[in-house]
């Protein structure tokens, strides 16, 4: 028989799976699916909306306008010599990316349950696919900030080359949180509202609306352990040339992100199989 049996893929279905098996090869074999899921998330979001892609920027710009009016015009936060609109905008880009991507990554299993419970595919793709839309939106915002920046006299410099790395590492942090919490979020519906509260608090605690010089110096060692502190400061450095002092806690924040991400991969793999049973 002209048989290709040896080359056929062999699948074993069994109860026990060693904790260290991530099936990365399977995920890689489905990389086309990752692209399609990403684009599905982007295009389906703006389908049947009269303003279409404008929505990607409308919401962040409306928020920005409000913040500038309240904190720049009424409260008059002291930002040194940097105009308040660009001061907030540069901080808002990494923060919005982080907040939205985290919520989407945490909810990725629950949001795609219709798919997860009916089709077999590497679920590891989901947290990655679900944050792409936010990454896409933030790239648009970067372009707008460059234009707005030029209006205030901040012209693009060589420093902008760190922006892609910045956006990617913020996304990685969001994915790491998603990897840890996506499984529990299916079992306990409380996880997402709790995340929402934490992110809201984080928005006011992080140095978005004010410069970190307003934080009492004795709290700074703890304050700078927040990875988003560094994301915001580096973003202001890249867009506005505001000096940033990379202290040891920057390295620590980076290490924390990497550890959370790698360990998250294993946590997710362990949780993902049970998610269908407890949906």
């Amino acid at each position: 028989m002209p048989d290709a049996t040896p080359t056929l893929p062999r699948k074993i279905i069994q109860a026990e799976r060693p904790w260290w098996r991530l099936d990365l090869a399977d995920a890689w074999a489905h990389r086309e699916l990752l692209w399609l899921l990403m684009w599905r998330n982007v295009t389906s979001r703006y389908a049947q909306m009269a303003l279409g892609m404008v929505w990607a920027i409308l919401e962040p710009l409306a928020l920005l306008l409000t913040l500038v009016l309240v904190f720049g015009f009424f409260v008059r936060v002291d930002t040194g010599n940097i105009p308040y609109p660009v001061f907030v905008f540069a901080a808002q880009i990494p923060w919005l990316l982080f907040a939205k991507a985290t919520m989407n990554a945490v909810g990725c299993l629950q949001e795609h349950m219709a798919l997860v419970s009916k089709v077999s595919f590497p679920r590891l793709l989901l947290p990655f696919a679900s944050v792409f839309r936010d990454l896409f939106d933030s790239v648009i915002l970067v372009l707008i900030l460059i234009v707005v920046g030029m209006f205030y006299g901040y012209f693009p410099t060589w420093r902008l080359i760190v922006v892609p790395a910045l956006l990617l590492s913020v996304t990685m942090l969001a994915i790491a949180i998603g990897l840890w919490l996506a499984g529990p979020a299916v079992r306990m519906r409380d996880v997402r509202p709790i995340m929402l509260i934490i992110l809201q608090m984080g928005f006011y605690f992080s140095p978005i609306l004010f410069p970190p010089s307003l934080v009492p110096p004795r709290f700074l060692p703890i304050y700078t352990m927040n990875p988003m502190y560094w994301a915001i400061e580096i973003s202001r450095w890249a867009f506005l040339g505001r000096p940033v002092d990379l202290s040891p806690s920057f390295v620590m924040a980076l290490v924390v992100v990497v550890i959370a991400f790698v360990s998250g991969l294993f946590v997710y793999a362990a949780n993902e199989r049970a998610a269908v049973d407890v949906q």
Partner: peptide, 27 residues
């Protein structure tokens, strides 16, 4: 058998690519 749900015990071996249509139009 399609790998959507993990078994509690026991095993299954499937040789070849598995296509499943468990509900019309999923995905």
């Amino acid at each position: 058998l399609s790998g959507i749900v993990a078994p509690t015990s026991g095993r299954a071996w499937l040789t070849g690519r598995v296509g499943s249509l468990l509900e019309i139009g999923t995905g």
